[in-house]
């Protein structure tokens, strides 16, 4: 038998890691997740439209009759209505249906969400709480041409005033974009509109490359959310 080098801490892989025509075989790590470095499509933050890959964020899903009370017990703010979301203490809680939730740490709150996820998967959780693995590709879209991109790819009108302009609460949209089911949350942060999308990871390559092609046509590209110094070869 070969000598097997088992990593002490297994590396997570972004749903688009290595699979979307990156210029170099490089990736970088955030929250233990290896992510691609698309050298040829990288743009600056004020480009017409930018895609940010945010799959590294810690998240979990849950559903079931006791899901809401479980979240409350763990001190998460829970939206009162289905198809809505709240952000509190840097953590997004999205209510996808009457008793189904998606919880994701934004910038802050990674550790707290990771701990909660471990508890959710523990064998002593209430029987009426069902964990929902969330391995989604998460993409943030921003930029002045955001609406142009959306209008080429989705039949839902996200433009103001229909698209909501809030930073801490609002409705979410379950729809399809370029033929793929997505969860979409429009937000406005510091006067800048952004849309966050959650996508089944098996569609990640198709979704990312297609959306990026549209963005590039509009004068946009990928915006890295981490300084270049943080990159390394993790392949």
């Amino acid at each position: 038998m070969s000598v097997v080098s088992v990593p002490a801490r297994p590396l997570r892989r972004s749903p688009i890691d290595g699979g979307h025509g990156v210029a170099a075989d490089l990736s970088f790590v955030r929250e233990d997740m290896a992510r691609p470095l698309p050298l040829d499509r990288t743009v600056v933050s004020d480009a017409a439209v930018v895609l940010k890959e945010m799959s590294w964020r810690r998240r979990f899903g849950l559903k079931g009759p006791a899901a809401e009370s479980w979240l409350a017990t763990h001190h998460f703010h829970v939206p009162s209505k289905a198809n809505s979301w709240v952000v509190a203490d840097g953590i997004l809680v999205a209510r996808l249906a009457t008793s189904e939730f998606l919880v994701e740490a934004l910038e802050a709150g990674q550790a707290r969400v990771a701990v909660a996820a471990r508890e959710l998967y523990a064998h002593d959780r209430p029987l009426a709480v069902y964990p929902v693995p969330r391995q989604d590709l998460v993409v943030e879209l921003q930029g002045p041409a955001l609406n142009d991109l959306l209008r080429q790819t989705c039949s839902v009108d996200f433009a103001p005033p229909r698209g909501l302009r809030a930073s801490d609460a609002g409705p979410l949209v379950l729809t399809s974009m370029i033929g793929v089911a997505v969860i979409a949350i429009p937000r406005e942060l510091s006067g800048r509109r952004e849309l966050t999308l959650w996508v089944d990871p098996s569609y990640a390559h198709y979704f990312w490359t297609t959306l990026l092609a549209v963005a590039v046509d509009l004068g946009g590209g990928v915006l890295l959310d981490q300084p270049h110094g943080a990159y390394g070869d993790h392949t």
């Binding site: 038998m1 070969s2 088992v6 297994p10 749903p15």
Partner: peptide, 19 residues
């Protein structure tokens, strides 16, 4: 979970190399 798929695939192939 999908995010660990690559790591596990690689390590299994490594473990089975001599077999």
């Amino acid at each position: 979970p999908a995010e660990f798929g690559v790591e596990l695939w690689r390590v299994i192939l490594q473990a089975g190399q001599s077999s």
